[in-house]
């Protein structure tokens, strides 16, 4: 077994790690899109690699077969059975985690849809966007009491941006990916930050006041009782502070050119990383048939 079979999965993963560690100075909309592509590519490549290892171990490839489907099987060498067993176990665990997450997301969606939008009685000042065509915003009485009209406008513009750009799809996808491949937790966090920054930038543009937007975020955050976000074990990533800091700086460039270029670069890198795995996989299926 050659180490090359790890390359497809490790390339997008390394890019996602790099991107979450050092976010390039670009508009958060592009950061979010690129991160989402890299996260998706990593999950796909990991799943394909595991499938490949399992298939390679259970299929006996001989030199005679190699003539039919190409000779890369022989180059890779046989995959030892223990590796395939580990791969199968990992694949099972990932499937279970993925299915459980999807079921929970569906239950949560149903719950918030039943709750509906509008103001809910709660002392904690919070606002949330409910996705979908019939969505809207959920505000707490605590928030309405805390903020001035202009500040409330910031919050509502922020939530409108979430709905407009379908951020819940990115978030649900990121949560699912991080459950399937736990190593993506950091990239998932970076994606969350990018999405909040994206909505912040939209809100700041709509109200035309970056400082007001920054102040509103800080006020709401400081008025919230300290929460220990249980789904970020041990991670102090200071998302609110980073959002406020970014708003106190000047408007980020909108990256009309670099954004699309980097995004398509990510797509192409993804494609070229995954396609060898896919072709290997396809030829194995051919061989089995």
């Amino acid at each position: 077994m050659s180490l090359e079979i790890y390359i497809p999965a490790s390339l997008p993963f390394a890019a996602a790690l790099l991107m979450s560690w050092r976010q390039p100075r670009m508009h958060p909309a592009w950061t979010a899109r690129i991160l989402a592509v890299l996260i998706g590519a990593t999950v796909l490549a990991v799943l394909c690699t595991l499938l490949f290892a399992i298939l390679a171990a259970v299929t006996a490839v001989t030199a005679a077969d190699a003539g039919i489907v190409g000779d890369f099987f022989l180059e890779h060498g046989p995959v030892p059975m223990p590796v395939a067993v580990v791969a199968a176990l990992a694949l099972c665990a990932m499937t279970v985690a993925g299915v459980r997450t999807v079921l929970r997301q569906r239950a949560d969606l149903r719950h918030v849809r039943n709750l509906g939008t509008g103001v809910v009685a709660d002392e904690r000042p919070f606002a949330a966007a409910l996705p979908g065509r019939d969505g809207g915003v959920i505000l707490s009485t605590g928030l309405v009491r805390l903020l001035t009209g202009r500040e409330l406008e910031v919050v509502l513009r922020h939530e409108a941006a979430h709905i407009k750009h379908r951020h819940h799809l990115y978030l649900m996808f990121g949560a699912l990916a991080a459950r399937i491949v736990p190593a993506l937790a950091g990239a998932h966090r970076a994606l969350r930050l990018a999405l909040e920054r994206w909505a912040d930038e939209d809100a700041a543009e709509a109200v035309g006041d970056r400082a007001l937007t920054a102040r509103t975020i800080a006020r709401v955050a400081l008025a919230n009782p300290a929460a220990t976000p249980a789904w970020y074990p041990g991670a102090a990533d200071f998302q609110v502070a980073r959002r406020v800091q970014a708003l106190l700086r000047e408007t980020p460039p909108d990256n009309r050119i670099t954004g699309p270029v980097l995004l398509s670069g990510a797509w192409m890198a993804t494609g070229s990383a995954i396609s060898p795995t896919f072709s290997h996989y396809a030829s194995f299926v051919l061989l089995l048939v």
Binding site: V112, A127, A128, H158, H168, G174, A221, N224, A227, V240
Partner: peptide, 11 residues
């Protein structure tokens, strides 16, 4: 699970 997008979380 990412179903809701909150304005901020507690600090």
């Amino acid at each position: 699970s990412g179903v809701l997008t909150h304005f901020v979380h507690g600090l």
